[in-house]
Simulated assay, not measured.
Amino acid sequence: MSSAPGGCRSGLDPRYYMLCDKKAAWGIVLEALAAVGAVTSVAFVIALLVLICKVQDSNRRKMLPTQFLFLLGVLGIFGLTFAFIIKLDGGTGPTRFFLFGILFALCFSCLLVHAFNLTKLVRGRQPLSMLAMLGLALGFSLVQDIIALEYVVLTMNRTNVNIFSELPPPRRNEDFVMLLIYVLFLMALTFLMASFTFRGSFTGWKRHGAHIYLTTLLSIAIWVAWITLLMVPTPGTQWDDTILGSALVANGWVFLLAYIAPELQLLTRQRNPMDYPVEDAFCKPQLMKQSYGVENRAYSQEGVTQGTEETGDTLYAPYSTHFQMQNRNSQKDFSIPRAQTRVSPYSDYEGRKDVS
């Protein structure tokens, strides 16, 4: 049995050597960065819970469940880094192939839904509801779950968990990249949708779109770099775990610093009326026109015509109200009656006759 490297205690399982080997310092560095990133993600979750009652803008409040889901994905990314620091075996192999794409699909699905909602807000349209955004984010990420589950089950032939460590490194790397095609599609779609957030009349939402745009742009750069290094034979297969672990940590910190941290700063800002249409009337009709109903004659053009022919003095005001104004002739005398003297029928009854 070989002795433990410097920094590791004696009797430690050899597959954990990279966590403490001072000669291979990359493992210790990635371990520290991943641990700090995980703690920071938990701190951001707590901060969102604390600030949720201080959010004044209802449309920012609607994004909180999706952002919570996003932070859970980032927390999982930092945790998955340890599976790439530990030696590839029957335990870490299925974990790597199954969770890598699922966690990134979850994060990019949340960014995609946020960007799509911003394209509606920046144009003054009715935004998505809270449940709709959460459902869309879970729905987009579910596709990668199905893909990863089918691949892992078919590759392991249901029971052979050691197949991933037994595969030749070039074949293993090709399968790993092919398994992430849907994640690449989500990333490209998110980048395209984020670019659409810069076109609109309500500029207050464009800053949110800039956060998503920058986050996706940096993520694309990281993914192009690690896929290129993984597929070319120059660095050597001994650096495969280092490349993938570094990509996880780098992308996780991009998610926190380029998206979550700026969003927290804007979360408690006072609602700006300039970010919405007049009176926040998303459902207010833009063009008022005359209604031609059959059952309500007051709003019918036919009723207006017939009323004119019958009365001859109907006044119609087309730009004011649709109720008709008519000049009616007074038929009754509404003057106050005055007291009058009446002649008594007994005034001439005196028991005598008039002498002519």
Rank of each mutant, 00 (worst) to 15 (best):
S195E: 07
S195C: 09
S195Q: 12
F196L: 15
F196A: 13
T197G: 10
T197E: 03
T197V: 09
T197L: 08
F198R: 14
F198A: 13
R199D: 09
R199P: 00
R199C: 07
G200C: 05
G200D: 03
G200F: 03
G200P: 00
G200H: 04
G200N: 06
S201A: 14
F202L: 09
F202Y: 15
G204R: 11
W205L: 06
W205H: 07
K206H: 10
K206E: 05
K206Y: 02
K206A: 03
R207S: 12
R207T: 12
R207M: 11
H208D: 13
H208Q: 10
G209W: 01
G209C: 03
G209I: 02
G209Y: 01
A210Y: 06
I212K: 02
Y213K: 11
Y213M: 11
T215G: 05
T215L: 07
T215N: 12
T215A: 11
T216S: 15
T216K: 02
T216N: 01
L217C: 10
L217W: 09
L217Q: 09
S219V: 02
I220A: 05
I220K: 02
I220N: 07
A221H: 07
A221K: 09
A221G: 11
I222W: 01
W223S: 13
W223T: 15
V224P: 01
A225P: 00
A225E: 08
A225H: 08
